Computed example of a mutant assay.
Amino acid sequence: MRGKAKQRVSLILVVTMVLGTVLTGNTVFATGESSDEQDRIKINISKDSEQTVEQNVTQTIHVTAQGQCSQSVCLNVYLKNEDGSAATDIDAVNLLTSDQLTDKNTQKTIDETLKDSVTLNNGTKASPTAEWKNDKDDNGTVTSKYLQITMPAEAMAINFDMQLQYRTDEASYTKKVLVEAKAFEEEQDITEAAKRADESKENEATVVWEGQAVSQPESEAADEDTDGENNINTVSETGVYTLYFEQNTIDDPHSAWDNATQISVYAFSNNENTGVLQMYKVPESDSKNIWKITFDKEWTHVIFLTGDDWSGFFNQTEDIQID
């Protein structure tokens, strides 16, 4: 699983701070509407708060759906940026697979969150199957990110919460994310809003994270050099730090790194790991192609990859130790 690509890698740890508190709320079932059509799902998405919060604070979304269908139904919950692209930098901290957990005290698995979230037509509760999916174009770029929940034919309602989190080390930022849900039966959209002329927006909601730049103390500014290759090997008391990776430092005769449009990282310590996580390109890095990711715990080793899986021998670095 570990490749042997030659590399000269620069690792930079930058301390960031965690602000704010976690939002919580209660979920209320959406009111159903009568219909002459047999297969039709009414979806309601609501926010726990109308407030704009700072990065690292979770935004709680309530998702409910009601309807009786003749076959099993897929409920897809999409995370989109303002321009309609996939919000790959948003985490749902209560809808993770077991190998994605980095803090078991504050994060939950998909199975835990969706346990008994489905109501069957006989009144009993059931747990659906669910997984995160990424659709990609021919270049390997993620075009949509969504949670796909599969409900059985005898399901009549589902009710659960999503807790979304945005993390960045930028001093000034505004991040808007549209959460949209649609129901599909054999790939046919059976969402009630899609069948109504007014195109109801009950099945979507927008959440916002925003922060303003603050002046940096001279003592902190002096620690950074002009080319950004400083070596701050400390972690804040909250355990949050940012890892940077310069793509162009890889010496690769197969051009996998030069042509890569997505860089990912696999971090691990002892018997724990993050799984493969996507990094995010620093917009102002220009031709240097610098990527970053923020961790909430200290890891001792990392492996960088092109794409987002272990798909080839030349698409990954060797184990790299974080000093």
Rank of each mutant, 00 (worst) to 15 (best):
S10G: 10
V22P: 05
V22C: 11
G25S: 05
T27K: 04
V28Y: 07
F29Y: 07
E33Q: 11
S34D: 06
S35N: 09
D36V: 07
E37F: 01
Q38G: 14
Q38D: 12
D39M: 08
I41P: 02
E50Y: 10
T52D: 10
E54D: 08
Q55E: 12
V57P: 01
T58A: 15
T60Y: 01
I61Q: 05
T64M: 01
G67E: 03
G67F: 00
G67V: 00
Q68E: 09
Q68G: 01
C69K: 00
S70R: 12
S72G: 07
V73T: 08
L75H: 04
L75I: 11
N76H: 14
V77H: 08
V77M: 09
L79V: 08
L79I: 05
L79H: 03
N81M: 06
D83M: 15
S85K: 08
A87T: 08
D89H: 13
L95F: 02
D99K: 07
Q100V: 00
T102H: 05
T102A: 13
N105P: 00
T106E: 12
T113S: 10
K115F: 10
L120D: 03
N122R: 06
S127M: 02
A130I: 01
E131R: 13
W132D: 14
W132V: 08
D135S: 12
D138Q: 11
G140T: 09
V142L: 12
T143G: 14
A155G: 13
M156Y: 10
D161T: 06
Q165F: 04
T168E: 06
D169K: 03
S172R: 03
K176M: 15
V179N: 02
A181V: 03
A181F: 00
F184K: 11
E185Y: 01
Q188W: 00
R196N: 15
E199W: 03
S200F: 03
S200R: 06
K201Q: 15
W209I: 06
Q212V: 15
A213E: 14
S215Q: 09
Q216I: 15
P217V: 08
S219C: 04
E220H: 01
A222Y: 00
D223A: 11
E224L: 06
E224I: 03
E224K: 09
D225M: 01
T226F: 12
T226A: 05
T226H: 02
G228P: 06
E229R: 03
E229M: 03
E229L: 02
N231W: 00
I232E: 13
I232C: 06
T234I: 01
E237V: 05
T238W: 02
T238Y: 00
G239P: 08
V240E: 14
V240Q: 04
Y241T: 12
L243H: 04
N248D: 06
D251W: 01
A256E: 15
D258Q: 13
T261L: 13
T261V: 15
Y266Q: 07
S269N: 05
N271D: 13
V276M: 07
Q278D: 14
K281Q: 13
V282Y: 00
V282K: 05
E284M: 08
S285K: 06
D286E: 09
K288I: 05
I290E: 14
T300H: 05
T300Q: 14
V302L: 10
V302C: 13
D308N: 10
W310R: 14
W310L: 12
S311R: 06
G312S: 11
F314G: 15
Q316A: 15
T317H: 10
E318A: 15
E318N: 11
D319C: 02
Q321P: 05
I322T: 07
